[in-house]
Design a protein around this nucleic acid. Structure first.
Lengths: 210, 210, 210, 210
DNA sequence: GTATAAACGAGACGGTACGTCAGGTCTTTCT
DNA sequence: AGAAAGACCTGACGTACCGTCTCGTTTATAC
């Protein structure tokens, strides 16, 4: 089938060498700061060859990340949806604090400036995760654990959004107890439910922050 | 009082010129791609002078952003906390789709690679917003609209996390109706509350996504 | 034969362009004041390319000088050694007052501060001249025109030293008649030879200059 | 003469400080490489003040050199002119190999590019030496030790030219024995005087060096 | 087998930007 | 008024990477 390419075929060894070397280069000097030039120098592969295969250093990093991360974040199915998410989010947080996770953070950040990278990130990383998440949500709805109303993607946003927000901008990293509280709050809702009235009945409006 | 600086004082005109020019430069060529060199050329200010005042182009952009944004995103106090947040988040989303917002997105992305920038972002942008948000949450708790349990910062994460997540990685931008659904879901909780039982009792486990 | 250089070969056109342009640049703005930046601008050759080939502007100037001067100062063999030197020194003086000569003067001056340049000057300019000079001296000794005693290099120092000294620090430039007198004096010696006695026998000691 | 005004003016202190500091700065980092900026930093004197007094760093160096060198190279009057010159030239060579001498070499080199510096060098250094030299020559002529014919300045060129030539461009430094041979050769002349004929009578012309 | 087509290494090349240094000038404040 | 502190503009420095290119070599498939 497919078009049989004529000419010399690409050296598979080079691919591995480059991906490996790029990872360790990134770990030692920082994932930003990885340049085609340095990769070429470190691996002994000619710059021309690199450019023939990847458009820029971030593309290499993305490939390297995915190659090493196929099995990362495995879906752990627990007894309830809530437990599944709890488990997954804890793994997520843990993963992001590892070297690999830091790498992904850089890639995500860079993606906002590099359209092609963003596309790759979405297609090869975020969407698979989302697909997986959706199936859990669907399971939760089916099992009666979750409300039927909201869009599954919204549910995922609600669950993972805060975690990412914390990872990106939080003062300190998310902890297991943070996630427990998060899930508990999100599941039960922000709204006050019991009949108890607030101590002060008058709706005290806060002072508008200047 | 205060330290009396000796020597020639910094030219205030330069500050304005540079901040203005940097903004419009960024808008025309893209906020990444703004370089010290170009700012110097466009403004006619010497490169050395720029470096004396800012360590790099992102620092200028941050200053420029804040200078223009003091009054942006003013807190609009509505009748209820829920309405206040809804209003604020809609403004937020709208703001982020403007030119200024795109700028902030770049800054936030870049901040993950530039520690000093991240510090500035946190101290000068995120924290003020957070302080404002906390006061609304406090008001909501006091008025009985919100649960007393969760940490105010967690509440803010839950509300804004999904929005940011969507802004950063969503397929399409957040809409007003998205925010309405988000708030509604978050306020009432993900958990199923009515007596209704799930259709299928057998806990159908989803197919693990390969 | 020889080492086959791998990779793209250096563009010969660039070499010529740069050497030519550098010469005329130097003539128009002064040989000091020639900078890599200006050469790059004038020639349209990238700065990086210049630095790949020459460490600094003086190295370009040295190359440019030699390229244009291969045939300059050709040895003119006259009937006697004395005439040969006379002819050569006159040519030398004349050469040094030309644009090219002014250039060499700058190079010689700069060489006292730039070791690499001094090495180049010695190896590629002074030594060839010296070799040529030595052969004339040898001829003079063989023909009986010159004493056998002194070291040939000393003879060259004695002949050319005064000329250079005059070129470097003399109030006015050396003239043909200066050279005639110089050679005549140097050949016959400073010492008084005839039987004539000094007018005043008492050894009048000069007043020590304060 | 008169008693100095009590209370040395501040100006004078600065002058000394700067001259001293410049010298030692030059000795530590190299006399080229001395900049106004560095002098200002080292001495604590404001750049403005430096520029008010000297047009550039070389001018400071020249002043510093002369201030420290008033008594250097003192004229040593010996029994004969020949001995006087011999002594003086040996001192000269020795002086030039000292730190101060290296400094002067740099100044002389730089002077070829800096007219004002060249003027200063000539007026304040070379001419005094020349005046002194002329008086010795005059003494030698008067005493009958030297020929009457040649211009005294030519004699000085002949004597000092070779030494300077050697100092500037010689492979190795001039030694005492070099100077002895130089003087001996110069005094007796290059021309062969005895009746002895060259071994080979045919005027063997040297092979023209290619 | 021998084209032919592509991969590959090496390195030149034109660019853009970097961040720094030094030169001079000018302003401000202090003494 | 003179000195210090320091802002400012100018010009050049030498380097890092970029992405493209030109070569000559190597290796595969296709005729």
């Amino acid at each position: 089938m497919g078009p049989r390419p004529s000419g010399r075929s690409r050296d598979a060894v080079i691919t591995c060498t480059v991906l490996d070397a790029t990872l360790s280069l990134g770990e030692s000097i920082g994932f930003d700061r990885v340049t085609m030039e340095k990769v070429a120098e470190v691996t002994g592969v000619a710059k021309t060859t690199l450019y023939r295969r990847w458009p820029n250093a971030w593309a290499i990093l993305m490939d390297a990340f995915l190659a090493e991360t196929r099995e990362m974040a495995p879906l752990v199915q627990k007894r309830t949806v809530r437990e599944s998410f709890s488990e997954d989010m804890k793994l997520l947080v843990q993963a992001y604090s590892s070297g690999r996770g830091q790498m992904l953070l850089r890639i995500l950040a860079r993606a906002h400036v590099d359209t092609a990278l963003m596309d790759a990130v979405k297609k090869r990383w975020l969407e698979p995760l989302q697909v997986r998440g959706r199936s859990i949500v669907a399971w939760g709805i089916a099992s009666g654990e979750l409300q039927e109303g909201p869009d599954p993607d919204l549910v995922l946003d609600i669950l993972y959004g805060p975690v990412y927000h914390r990872l990106f901008f939080g003062a300190e990293a998310a902890t297991a107890s943070y996630i427990d509280k998060l899930i508990s709050t999100v599941f039960s809702g922000l709204k006050r439910r019991d009949g108890a009235q607030p101590k002060a009945t008058q709706s005290r409006r806060p002072r508008a922050p200047k």
